[in-house]
Amino acid sequence: MNQLALLGHAALSKLAAFGRAGMMLFQSLVAKPQPVIMFPLFVKQVYFVGVLSLIIIVVSGLFIGMVLGLQGYTILVDYGSEQAVGQMVALSLVRELAPVVTALLFAGRAGSALTAEIGLMKATEQLSSLEMIGVDPLRRIVAPRFWAGFVCLPILSAIFALVGVYGGAIVGVEWLGIYDGSFWANMQNSVDFYDDVLNGLIKAVVFGFVVTWIAVFQGYDCMPTSEGISQATTKTVVYASLAVLGLDFILTAVMFGEL
């Protein structure tokens, strides 16, 4: 009986957390727009969340593209169809790897930082102080961070895909000697702008929404202690990664799986 009660308690508290997350999102985003105050805050967050994530995105995009080129070449050269490397690299990057890997890196690099920052603000009672002087912390702290993450992830994902494709081209064309023209022509024949590139971007937009939402909520909802902050940061990375991978399957099934 006790176990049953425990289970019920756990389920209820998870549901309550979902409810709080929804409330938080609604309250921070649905309000009278104040572009003059909000825009500089937003720009600052885009800098912290987006610009500073650029290095890790570019470097990992380059290496993932190069690895794809190398692996694809070693397999496809056996069948004499190494020209298809370009198509393989571009499709796997644009459809899958760019949005997913960017979202995972983003959760680790920017999501955890957002959680820790907001959590520390809560622990040091900066959020309560803001409330006391009549500033809504949801609008001033949470909203710009949320929008910044939402905007940055698609941009980062596009950069990741492009850098990855050129990484694959460096390995395939420059080092392994695939004929330049057929490498790009095969790629351009098989990659469709609307079906592949735009669907990949839609994925990135969805991941941006989910990852940033989880990050700001975990920060806002954490226990205001040092232990609570560390737990919240861990939860952000774990939940965001799981959500990204799970949602990726659903989105892929809807977009490409003809379900």
């Binding site: 596009a158 492009l162 790009w184």
Partner: peptide, 10 residues
């Protein structure tokens, strides 16, 4: 990057 993906890749 988006324009590059559109013109060069797709």
């Amino acid at each position: 990057a988006l324009v590059g993906l559109a013109l060069n890749v797709s």
